[in-house]
Nucleic acid binder design. Structure first.
Length: 154
DNA sequence: GCCAACGTTGGC
DNA sequence: GCCAACGTTGGC
């Protein structure tokens, strides 16, 4: 059973275009340091799950593409990297604290702004549209996924 | 740049 | 285990 997600990324860190230009259009979803988001990846994401790719903390927030989960869950690499901002001294190889998947660009889509998404009552329960939402990985229902997919064809 | 909302930390 | 203080997120 494929699950549907929405994954936020700051374009200054990894934009849809930087993803598109990677050799295999694939990147480890590094840097997640929030337990809820980690648990989604560690416990629920499966190879082949699909997600909308969202630009956040930028001038034009919203959906820019579709990505797929391209690996099983594995320990996240930057937690062990002394040079990295995401280095976590409490994490060990035997007992890693942070887990993640890799994602691959499935396709770029038209830009759907947060403003547009807010216009549809069908999407009013989407977590990413809720006030105060900060979670960088959220779940979508199949209905929401299909509704947005139709929007993307317009 | 503002600021509301949220998650995390740490003293007790 | 509570909860105040703090730091961060992220749309506006």
């Amino acid at each position: 059973m494929v699950k549907y997600w929405l994954m936020k990324s700051e374009p200054s860190e990894c934009s849809i275009d930087s993803l598109a230009h990677l050799p295999k259009k694939t990147i480890e979803w590094f840097g997640i340091r929030n337990y809820q988001a980690r648990n989604f990846m560690r416990d629920e994401m499966k190879l082949g799950d699909l997600a909308f790719f969202w630009h956040s903390s930028c001038k034009e927030p919203g959906i820019y593409g579709i990505v797929e989960v391209s690996t099983e869950v594995h320990p996240e690499t930057t937690q062990f990297d002394l040079e990295s901002d995401y280095y976590d001294p409490a994490s060990t190889a035997e007992n890693p604290r942070w887990w993640c998947v890799d994602i691959r660009l499935f396709k770029k889509t038209r830009y759907v702004s947060i403003k547009e998404l807010r216009e549809y009552p069908e999407l009013s329960d989407m977590q990413v549209l809720k006030r105060g939402n900060r979670l960088s990985i959220t779940k979508l229902t199949k209905t929401e996924w299909e509704f947005i997919n139709k929007l993307l064809l317009q």
